[in-house]
Design a binder for these strands. Structure first.
Lengths: 196, 196
DNA sequence: ATAAATTATGAATACTTATTCAAAAATAAT
DNA sequence: ATTATTTTTGAATAAGTATTCATAATTTAT
């Protein structure tokens, strides 16, 4: 049996991330992706059902990795709720440090994808959010977080804030360091803007 | 000279908002918009240069209105920096209360548009952000806000958070009231999650 | 009432682009 | 070396859809 030499499947998905980041999903043409990946147009359809399928797989990979990390945080009973949220935020930032293009695709196409991915069987994105909400509830139960906070609203609040910052950072990586952003986010979440 | 009876220009832009909200910009067809607006396909091209032009005008209208409001806040010297930010947040939420569809279009297409609108002459969006940043700097200068906060990061942080909450709210208006969301956002920005 | 000007129409056009598939190339098995 | 199997290819196909424009309808002016 013939054994594949290169890894076209991987080449294609990496090319797609580059292309989607640069032009956006809807403006990326299959032929663009093929050129970046150095394969023929037809080859893409050997490894993926269609264009949408590529995007779905990009996201599923990402959320699977993040879900793996958050379950590790959850298992670590020595961490306080504050530390859990800090670590969770750190993991999200870290996931994008190695791949700014992925960050851009994430912030731009995530919403479009939610409509499709909700039908997927292993929805790592949903699972991830559920664990995140548990952390907030723990903090409130343990009387560490203010009980005035609605955990659902907070979850959406914080993810939106991070997403927007990542987009900004990914677009202009020179202007400000991700470490600085991470620091500010952690501070703002803990203390808000008012001076103590 | 002939005088227009109805207002097709307005009908079209309102139909476009509905359609973009429901299907997304890229999946909305000109013929869809024409049907909703009760006009012929050709009429759309009488009032707008092309499909993109409609989207650009939707956003320009929105940011123009918000810019008008924020300049009024700026002029009101009796307000403290905290009150200014509170009012600013309130205005953003209010702008979408009357038109949930506009909120959906805003959160979904804003990013795609930034690439185009940056070339526009009256960029109300940019002007708006600049005034917002002034409020933060005032607060830090007057020693009311923590000086650990980077005003640029905060601006992006807070707008991202609001955008994400609006999207959530617009998608599921029954689950949670906008008033409740607004309340939580104000609280979080002031105090963070930690109990005092 | 007629002409002039304006506004509205939608079938036809032109263009883009995702997807297919028959054939070729590359590799493995005999 | 020959055959079988797998992988790759890209021109051709198919489908969709933004935009145009000649014509019609409507309103205003004379």
């Amino acid at each position: 049996m013939r054994h594949k030499e290169g890894n076209k499947e991987k080449d294609i998905i990496e090319a797609a991330i580059k292309c989607f980041a640069k032009k956006g999903y809807h403006h990326s043409k299959i032929i663009d992706i093929a050129k970046i990946a150095n394969v023929a147009v037809g080859s893409i359809y050997v490894y993926y059902n269609n264009k949408e399928d590529i995007l779905i797989k990009i996201f599923n990979n990402l959320w699977e990795r993040l879900y793996f990390k958050i379950t590790n945080i959850e298992k670590n009973s020595r961490l306080t709720p504050v530390e859990k949220i800090d670590t969770m935020i750190e993991d999200i930032f870290d996931a994008f440090i190695e791949n700014p293009n992925l960050a851009i695709v994430f912030v731009n196409e995530q919403q479009y994808l939610l409509k499709l991915s909700s039908t997927l069987s292993n929805n790592f994105h949903k699972k991830y959010l559920d664990v995140g909400e548990i952390f907030i509830k723990e903090g409130i139960q343990q009387n560490i977080f203010s009980s005035e906070i609605n955990s659902n609203i907070f979850r959406i609040f914080i993810l939106g804030a991070i997403r927007n910052l990542l987009r900004y950072w990914a677009d202009t990586p020179v202007k400000i360091s991700l470490a600085k952003i991470k620091e500010n986010v952690t501070y703002l979440i803990r203390n808000g803007i008012l001076k103590k």
